[in-house]
Nucleic acid binder design. Structure first.
Lengths: 208, 208
DNA sequence: CGCGCGAACGAACGATCGTTCGTATGTTTG
DNA sequence: CAAACATACGAACGATCGTTCGTTCGCGCG
């Protein structure tokens, strides 16, 4: 196995090796048309290559999917591990988690799209492993809410539900067309944080 | 063979005609495996029929998808039209919209799953029409937020963004395993409304 | 120079795809 | 009873699927 170029957060930069080019094209096609609706021949054609040559770089179609999905999953989980170790008030850690999640999300939107929508086409045992990683990441967010509730910073509720909903919300942002620069990204993060913390009601109205 | 006798006392909603049974099975398969990954032969097999016989009821595979997607789209849009005509304070109309959206969502989760995830496999011109219906529905929610902002009930923000995010959030609920009864559904609606209105922060903390 | 090897290709494999055709079998209608 | 119709099926169509095979080409290295 060569270097894991998928982990590097460059979306548009031209990959050096042929292998990385194929992975990048596959990511785009899997995202736009779906895994099942993308054929190896089309992938080859867009890559400027013949279909059999693909198998000099990837042993199967599913290997491509595997690499994309687990590349993103590892990135998310390792980010979560890093954030969990931070010594900050829980609401600040939440803000950081939102910010980092969005940063990762926009570092390669197409890969995230595949990660979010196409993972179900993985076969066992990869599927099990993937779900476990996904659950880890959800648990990290759930843990933030749980801790915040214990400390009285957050209203009571189901922490796992809240974690999943927040992730759902952020992941939906990849559908917005504009590619945000780092400033716009920070703004988006504050927007999510504000919405999640205080909702849409004007501050004059009171909670029930 | 008269296998109709077996089809009578079936699982959730016993479809009267063969046509409805096929549509129901197609919905389940398209939802669980995806449109592209579902073959007509498998659909036939699960329906207890041979593949060519399907074409006595539906003229093509895409016709099935079309019927599922537009069936849900029409239901959502007509509900929105009904709600828009209601003479209620805007925040109450939002609560009702959330409630009705959830009700529709859980009335047929599999169809909603197809509606949300598989519409992109429609071909033109249906695809255009579908997107237009979808946009109508988003605009309805955006309109609620816009009106709420003008009246000072809601904090300032991008109404279309808020509308899309709220829909995204609710649509994600179909992944939860439990089938809620009408009381649990009402609770879920209040949960969404509360979260959306006031966020997760405990009421002692203040917005920035 | 010659040897090995990764990378590319044309051909083609067996499987499966969506769909059509001809036909058989009731059931309804005149 | 006969004509008409809806529904089912087996066979099979052409297309395309993921993948394998045998081969060739070009390059680095002894």
């Amino acid at each position: 196995m060569k270097s894991d170029l998928l982990a590097a957060p460059h979306a548009t930069a031209p990959p050096s090796s042929r292998r990385a080019l194929i992975a990048s094209v596959a990511t785009e096609l899997f995202h736009r048309k779906g895994y099942a609706a993308t054929s190896m021949r089309e992938l080859a054609s867009v890559s400027g290559i013949e279909a059999p040559s693909l198998y000099n770089h990837f042993s199967s179609k599913e290997t491509l999917l595997h690499e994309i999905c687990f590349g993103m999953a590892d990135a998310f989980v390792s980010t979560a591990r890093r954030l969990a170790a931070l010594d900050l008030p829980v609401e600040d850690r939440l803000a950081r988690a939102i910010e980092e999640h969005l940063r990762l999300l926009f570092s390669d939107r197409e890969a995230v799209g595949v990660f979010v929508n196409e993972w179900r086409h993985l076969s066992e045992p990869s599927l099990q492993t993937f779900k476990a990683l996904r659950s880890d990441y959800e648990q990290f967010f759930a843990g933030l809410f749980q801790e915040g509730m214990l400390k009285g910073v957050f209203r009571q509720g189901d922490p796992l539900w809240l974690g999943r909903q927040l992730l759902l919300l952020m992941n939906g942002s990849i559908h917005s067309t504009a590619r945000p620069d780092s400033e716009a990204l920070a703004n988006l993060g504050r927007r999510f944080y504000g919405l999640w913390m205080h909702g849409v009601a004007s501050s004059t109205t009171q909670p029930d």
